[in-house]
Nucleic acid binder design. Structure first.
Lengths: 210, 210
DNA sequence: AGTATACGAAACCGAGGAGTATCGGAAATG
DNA sequence: CATTTCCGATACTCCTCGGTTTCGTATACT
């Protein structure tokens, strides 16, 4: 199995120059960027390598194929994500939702949606990627919405019989639709209008004076 | 200009074997099918020709390039579409919306969404296609919803201050999201749940006994 | 009949991109 | 210093696919 079974015990120090871990993250970030701009089929390994300031060999030493690189890059988007443990808790559903659409969140969501659009065609052929992308891009947001909605419902702020799952997917759905199909940017105004004109009325929250 | 200016006046009968018009529709339908299954980049002209039972030359005699073929095929989807003049008018918003999601509509919407997903990457590079696709696939549905909503609002069935544009896009947005991102099929149950649990509450329609 | 075009099938051409190999140099171990 | 592996750069192979051409046949007009 292991051709290097001389002295370094198991996963110990290998011989020769060690790998530069910074190349990994640079390549993964470049992959996400090119993916968002060009889509999977429009993206070439040379583009990624050039943007990362790396050589093609350095890419292929780490990932066996273009598809594996993309799958790994998408999976790594999940890490720097909102932590369910520190969701906003302002006392009202509207306050929580508004807090969730702060400026960096909007720009970040816009790029994530473009990545999603870029790998749509590949997702048909790679079910594993489809699950990974859902978990990395959509699931966190939907889960956060679900938690906020359940909390508000248990407070008696909404109707008691709301369809939490459906409503939790509402904002991601309308956002992706606007970005990908209507090709208009996600703005803070759009998100707030979504909260006040669609989501809160649908949840049966009485409209406060604005 | 016209190298054939002998006897046939202007656009009259040409010389030789005339073109078979049935090949046009066969090729266009095959294009839509392959597009929905494979996406633009995964689709090859050979696939389309084979499925249409035609030769590649027959395709290229009619459309100068793959992109032109796809643009034309998408544009032709608009023809067999719902006519705004004969929208349902049942007296209630819910009745109208339910009537609009009859069985053939659901299956048709599912395929249209897959086509939309298949050309997403191309739409970035071809703004003309983006407009065409929107007009052929989404606009008719959104417009129909808008008309029904405005009618209901003017009847006093909804709150008077509803955001018609936002609400008209709600069902297409949630449908495309479910199809493309969540990869679950569009069922009649899903659409009705959307109407009863999201759209009507958001529009302020009082829930009738079900 | 003669001519001109359309048809399906298949060979063909050229560009572009995935993946591999090579090279000179750098960074680690011994 | 010798060895080994990593690095960026680049040349190279192989294959797919868009698009063109050819061929034998079919179908129109004159």
């Amino acid at each position: 199995m292991d051709p290097q079974a001389t002295q370094p015990a198991a996963a110990g120090a290998r011989l020769g120059r060690p790998r530069d871990a910074s190349r990994d993250t640079d390549i993964l970030e470049a992959t996400i960027e090119v993916l968002a701009e060009q889509g999977f089929d429009g993206m070439t390994i040379d583009m990624v390598a050039a943007r990362a300031g790396a050589g093609k060999a350095t890419v292929y030493r780490r990932w066996p194929s273009k598809a594996d690189l993309v799958i790994d890059a998408v999976a790594c988007m999940k890490k720097r994500d909102l932590d369910p443990a520190q969701l906003p808790d302002t006392g009202t559903l509207r306050g929580d939702l508004i807090a969730l659409v702060r400026a960096p969140s909007a720009a970040d969501a816009d790029r994530k949606m473009h990545v999603m659009g870029g790998i749509l065609s590949l997702m048909s052929r790679e079910p594993e990627l489809a699950r990974t992308a859902y978990a990395a891009i959509l699931q966190p947001r939907i889960t956060a919405n679900r938690i906020l909605l359940e909390r508000a419902r248990d407070r008696g702020e909404t109707r008691p019989d709301i369809d939490v799952d459906r409503l939790a997917a509402l904002m991601p759905a309308m956002s992706s639709f606007r970005t990908l199909a209507q090709r208009e940017p996600i703005t803070r105004e759009f998100l707030i209008s979504l909260i006040d004109d669609v989501l809160l009325p649908a949840a049966g929250v009485v409209r406060a004076a604005v």
